[in-house]
Amino acid sequence: MKLPHGRLDKSRVVTDPRDTLADVLDRELTGYAVFESQETLLLDGEGRGVMTFTDGVPVLVYHTGTDRGGPPALADLAVPGPYHVSLYTLDAADLESAHEAADLRVPPGMPAERLGGDPALADSTRRAAPDERLSAMGDGDATAPDDGTADQSAVEAFLDDAEKIEAIKQQARSEARERAQEWDF
């Protein structure tokens, strides 16, 4: 995915990507966000996730580590936080050519639903989305872009990544063992 350089708007560490999505929607940001997991133990932690927005509504998602776009890239992004998130603003015109990449598109509500785990935020995002984006992609739930190359939902793509899930489990186990001593159970 090629994007023009935007103007840095905010750069911070968040524990939950939902907060970033809510903030971007509130401020109707046009531009992009770069998500970088702080968890370097996980394989996909090496890559960065990029999500573009028009007026606060997500348009494209791409993951640099796996080179996947659209709903599967949301699954790649779903590693345990915290994330370092940088938000950049752009003029809508600068995003036009990037936004032609149909294979990187996600339904408007899907990031809030699948990454943020917040159906209410997904609903608000869909309400803020222009009609043509909703009609082009159904109501924005589990459906993938129209070309059918990625009709697997982001959740299923996540569940198909056995290696990543094993890494999440291993990390939790080692955390649990460390904390057992700290908490003096």
């Binding site: 939950d16 939902r18 949301l74 699954a75 779903a78 345990p80 639903e113 699948r114 990454l115 943020g116 785990g117 982001a154 959740v155 996540f158 569940l159 899930i165 999440i168 489990k169 939790a172 186990r173 955390e175 649990a176 063992r177 057992a180 159970f185």
Partner: peptide, 30 residues
């Protein structure tokens, strides 16, 4: 820790499943 077993309540979303996995790993570790 006190329980014999856990029932994990999930929503079919990535964060809920991923957090549910963590709960399971804590539980089985203990």
């Amino acid at each position: 820790v006190l329980a014999d077993r856990i029932v994990v309540v999930l929503q079919p979303t990535i964060p809920a499943i991923s957090d549910g996995l963590k709960v399971q790993e804590y539980a089985t570790t203990y």
